[in-house]
C-alpha cells in the first residue's frame, strides 16, 4: 500500500510537471494520473494528511487558477511528508542541487528545486525497503560521498573538526591559568610592603586633603 501511494505521487507529479511545462489540457493530465494510480490514491480522502479535519466540501467545484504557471506546481502532501523520522533523516542530508541546505529545508523552501523532492522520494523508498535510518544515511553517503552529509561523520580525520574547538578551550584555560599564576606570584613583594603604612601615617595631612579633593573631582 505504501509503495502504491508513492508511485501514485510520482505519477501525479509527472502530470503536474507536464502541465507546468505548458503541456496538454489538465483533463488529459488528470486522466494520465488516474490511469497511473490504480487506487486513485491522490484523490481519495485516505491519502490526505491526517491533519485534515473537514472533508472536501464539493469535489468538483475546485477553482482553476487564472494563471497556473505563475505558481510552482506541487504534489499533494502525504502524511509521510510530515513524518518526524523522515524529517530527521532529511535533516542530516544535504541537497545536491548546490543550495547548501539540507533536503528537508530545501524541499520545503526552494519550491523550484527538483533535486530535493527526488532525494525525498529516495528516502521514502529506502524506508519502504525496511532500511534503518542509519542504513539510509549510510546508503546516501555511499552514493554521493561524504559531502552529502550536513556534518562530517564522526570518524577518522573528521574527529579533528569536533575536537579541536574543545582542545582549543583546554589549551586556552591552561595558558590563562599559567599566566595568571605567574602574575600573582610576581605580586607578593609589593603586597607586603603596602600592608605596613596605615593611611594617614607618614603622609602629610595636607596631601591627604588634596587627594580627597582630587577624588571628589574625579568621576569614574
Amino acid at each position: 500500500m505504501r509503495a502504491v501511494r508513492w508511485y501514485g505521487g510520482t505519477a501525479v507529479r509527472a502530470a503536474v510537471l507536464a502541465l507546468a511545462l505548458g503541456g496538454r489540457a489538465d483533463a488529459q493530465a488528470r486522466e494520465r494520473a488516474d490511469a497511473a494510480t490504480p487506487s486513485g490514491v491522490s484523490q481519495s480522502p485516505t491519502a490526505r494528511p491526517p491533519a485534515r479535519l473537514t472533508a472536501p466540501s464539493s469535489t468538483d467545484s475546485l477553482g482553476r487558477l487564472y494563471a497556473p504557471n505563475m505558481v510552482q506546481s506541487r504534489a499533494p502532501v502525504t502524511a509521510r511528508d510530515n513524518d518526524a523520522l523522515v524529517k530527521a533523516i532529511e535533516g542530516k542530508l544535504r541537497c545536491t542541487c548546490g543550495c547548501n541546505l539540507d533536503v528537508f529545508t530545501c524541499r520545503t523552501t526552494d519550491f523550484s528545486c527538483a533535486t530535493s523532492p527526488a532525494m525525498h522520494r529516495q528516502v521514502l523508498a529506502r524506508l519502504d525497503s525496511a532500511m534503518t535510518p542509519q542504513q539510509i544515511v549510510a546508503a546516501f553517503e555511499a552514493q554521493y560521498g561524504q559531502a552529502v552529509l550536513m556534518a562530517p561523520p564522526k570518524r577518522g580525520f573528521n574527529w579533528a573538526a569536533y575536537i579541536m574547538p574543545f582542545v582549543g578551550l583546554g589549551v586556552g584555560i591552561a595558558i590563562v591559568g599559567l599566566v595568571m599564576r605567574r602574575w600573582i606570584r610576581a605580586r607578593p613583594a609589593t603586597l607586603i610592603e603596602v600592608e605596613t603604612p596605615p593611611p594617614g601615617v607618614g603622609v602629610a595631612g595636607q596631601e591627604l586633603e588634596r587627594l580627597k579633593r582630587e577624588l571628589e573631582r574625579f568621576e569614574a
Binding site: R94, D102, G145, A147, V148, M150, A151, A161, M164, G168
Partner: peptide, 28 residues
Amino acid sequence: AFSVLWGTLFPILSEWVKGTKVTVGPPF
C-alpha cells in the same frame, strides 16, 4: 571565534589532507 573559523575552513582542510569533500553545516 576559533571554532567558527575552524568549521568554516574545515572542508578545505579535509580536501587537502584526506582528499575527501565534506560539508560542515548547522548540525556541526
